[in-house]
Amino acid sequence: MYPGLLHAHWIDEAEAKGFTLIDRVWDRLHVLLECKACGSQDVVRVSVLMGFQPICHACKTDRWHDTAEAAGLEYLRRDAHDRHYGIFRAPCGHELRRQFGLIERMAQGETGFRCAICQAGTEAAEAERRCWQLLGPDHEGDPNYRLYRHSCGHEQRVARVNMQTGRFQCGKCGPAWPAAPNNLYALRFVLGDGTTVVKLGHSNDPESRLHHQLRLRDDLPADLLKTVPMASGSAALRIEKRLHATLRRRFPWAVLPAERFRGVIKVTTEVYDGRLEPIVLAALDAIEARARRRPCPRG
């Protein structure tokens, strides 16, 4: 405590701002205030009391806890090096360092959060499924790219979306698509008006082709009906072109105009009326049977 008078205008100012003036402390410039809301005490300068709204740190901490909870996090403590940041625990159990302002925006539903540790694990698993190892961020600073190492030892920048879909090759050991193994495929889509259509094509990864390229709406019913492995992309393309030519010649009524599926399937041609599905599948069955009788080695 510090000896001296408690001036009446100090007492009135403290009352008006939600505090009780307890005493003078430390020196002539500081006083001890007690929060009327929670009962905790804080030391403030007289100039702060008279010219500003004093802060109850206990109430402020409670607000941080409440805001973090509304944002789906747990408030742990303030950052030791920057008063604008706090340390929070995410639902996954990892600790996050985030600005308090960002936590308030999260609590209001304006933005979300991402755990960098979990995100790195997700991206590492994506790479491992394709025989690559995640090394870290892109050395050129592009946020859409990562640096990976292939099982052959080659290091390469790859867009993350391409690592997810498999639509890329190793720059050292990967063959170009005309020589690489490929597949013919048949897909079924159900348009918004209930019309069933069939798509015939070729791809090194038909599942990826369906989910990451062709289907523009997640709610569009779609199925991969059949795939036929081919020895190379050039062989798949050659056979696919022959099939399309035959289908257009024999069943011109089944060739759908692009406006029928624009905005839901990301192609402009080679989509047919669903009544042609048995014929397309029979053609693929015949191609598959011939391939079994005369297998081609894969490169």
Rank of each mutant, 00 (worst) to 15 (best):
residue 196 T to Y: 07
residue 234 S to R: 09
residue 146 R to W: 14
residue 295 P to V: 14
residue 157 R to Y: 04
residue 151 S to W: 04
residue 122 T to W: 11
residue 153 G to L: 03
residue 189 F to N: 08
residue 196 T to G: 11
residue 150 H to L: 07
residue 177 W to S: 12
residue 46 V to N: 10
residue 93 G to L: 04
residue 294 R to C: 10
residue 143 P to R: 15
residue 167 R to K: 15
residue 278 P to Y: 00
residue 220 L to V: 06
residue 95 E to L: 07
residue 207 E to I: 09
residue 82 D to H: 08
residue 46 V to W: 03
residue 261 F to I: 01
residue 163 M to V: 14
residue 191 L to Y: 01
residue 17 K to A: 02
residue 10 W to E: 04
residue 254 A to M: 05
residue 27 D to V: 05
residue 145 Y to N: 13
residue 107 A to Q: 01
residue 195 T to P: 11
residue 31 V to S: 04
residue 117 I to S: 03
residue 190 V to M: 04
residue 293 R to W: 04
residue 151 S to G: 10
residue 206 P to R: 10
residue 233 G to M: 02
residue 167 R to C: 07
residue 74 E to G: 08
residue 44 V to K: 13
residue 41 Q to Y: 11
residue 224 L to T: 15
residue 271 V to Y: 04
residue 183 N to A: 12
residue 248 R to A: 00
residue 23 D to S: 13
residue 2 Y to P: 01
residue 149 R to G: 04
residue 66 D to T: 08
residue 183 N to K: 03
residue 214 L to W: 02
residue 198 V to P: 05
residue 22 I to T: 09
residue 29 L to Y: 11
residue 87 I to G: 01
residue 121 G to A: 10
residue 272 Y to I: 01
residue 257 P to G: 11
residue 235 A to G: 12
residue 30 H to L: 03
residue 20 T to W: 01
residue 72 G to R: 09
residue 273 D to T: 02
residue 140 E to G: 07
residue 184 L to H: 02
residue 210 L to Q: 01
residue 297 P to K: 01
residue 8 A to N: 12
residue 86 G to R: 00
residue 185 Y to A: 00
residue 34 E to D: 08
residue 187 L to Q: 07
residue 204 N to M: 09
residue 157 R to V: 15
residue 119 Q to R: 15
residue 168 F to W: 15
residue 199 K to E: 03
residue 142 D to R: 14
residue 23 D to G: 09
residue 4 G to A: 05
residue 117 I to K: 15
residue 155 E to Q: 12
residue 199 K to S: 08
residue 259 E to H: 12
residue 96 L to P: 02
residue 57 H to W: 14
residue 206 P to I: 08
residue 10 W to I: 02
residue 126 E to Y: 14
residue 182 N to Y: 13
residue 245 A to I: 01
residue 293 R to N: 05
residue 293 R to C: 13
residue 110 E to H: 11
residue 200 L to W: 00
residue 24 R to V: 08
residue 228 V to S: 02
residue 4 G to S: 05
residue 219 D to G: 02
residue 185 Y to E: 00
residue 77 R to I: 04
residue 106 M to F: 07
residue 273 D to K: 02
residue 62 D to K: 15
residue 234 S to T: 03
residue 89 R to V: 05
residue 20 T to E: 15
residue 233 G to Y: 03
residue 233 G to V: 06
residue 107 A to R: 02
residue 177 W to T: 14
residue 45 R to Y: 12
residue 189 F to E: 05
residue 133 Q to F: 05
residue 152 C to R: 10
residue 84 H to G: 12
residue 2 Y to C: 10
residue 9 H to K: 04
residue 127 A to C: 11
residue 129 R to S: 09
residue 120 A to C: 07
residue 290 R to P: 01
